[in-house]
Design a protein around this nucleic acid. Structure first.
Length: 160
DNA sequence: GGCATGATTGTTGGA
DNA sequence: TCCAACAATCATGCC
């Protein structure tokens, strides 16, 4: 549980300012945010210690792609609102109010990121197999890094 | 100084 | 099939 960490003061402050937590229709999701079963929810540190630093990060969903842009807009319109939770909330509301057509470009981007993720994941999986088969971690990692760099170039190249 | 937390939705991966 | 975890963001507070 997060509050148990004692850092609650920080977010309590934020929460009061945000007037959060009214309708938890996505209570399921909230479970992740409010991990009463702390045994399941590992800290970033624990995860970092456990997981492969080479493991590709999950691709952002359409909502997250939208959120990237929304944050910039939100900051401009609300320069004094710095709470990320406020941005998340506002973004969520905006997202819901958007039409499918408005969401389309973000979904397209998300799909693109997803396909890239699949490619990287593929390489990562191969790397894992190779590592299990052979211990040539260094070269395999380099391979993976190469792929990731390629992805970045591709993205840069096909920006529009 | 560094890490955890807060909110949001969508997607992934594991059981 | 269901559910938990995680993806980005960053000011803030605690240790």
């Amino acid at each position: 549980m997060k509050a148990a960490k004692g850092k609650g003061a920080a977010r309590r402050d934020s929460r009061e300012a945000l007037k959060v937590v009214d309708d938890r229709k996505v209570g399921k999701r909230k479970a992740a945010t409010k991990p009463e079963k702390s045994s399941k929810r590992q800290t970033k540190k624990e995860k970092l210690a456990k997981k492969d630093p080479n493991k590709p990060k999950r691709p952002p969903s359409a909502f997250f792609v939208f959120l990237e842009e929304f944050r910039k807009t939100f900051k401009k319109e609300n320069p004094n609102v710095k709470a990320v939770s406020a941005v998340g909330k506002a973004g969520g509301e905006k997202w819901k109010s958007m039409s499918e057509a408005e969401k389309a470009p973000y979904e397209a981007k998300a799909a693109k990121r997803k396909s890239e993720y699949e490619k990287v994941m593929n390489a990562y999986n191969k790397k894992q197999e190779s590592m299990a088969d052979d211990g040539d971690e260094e070269s395999e990692r380099s391979k993976s890094e190469e792929i990731e760099e390629e992805e970045e170039e591709e993205e840069d190249d096909d920006d529009d």
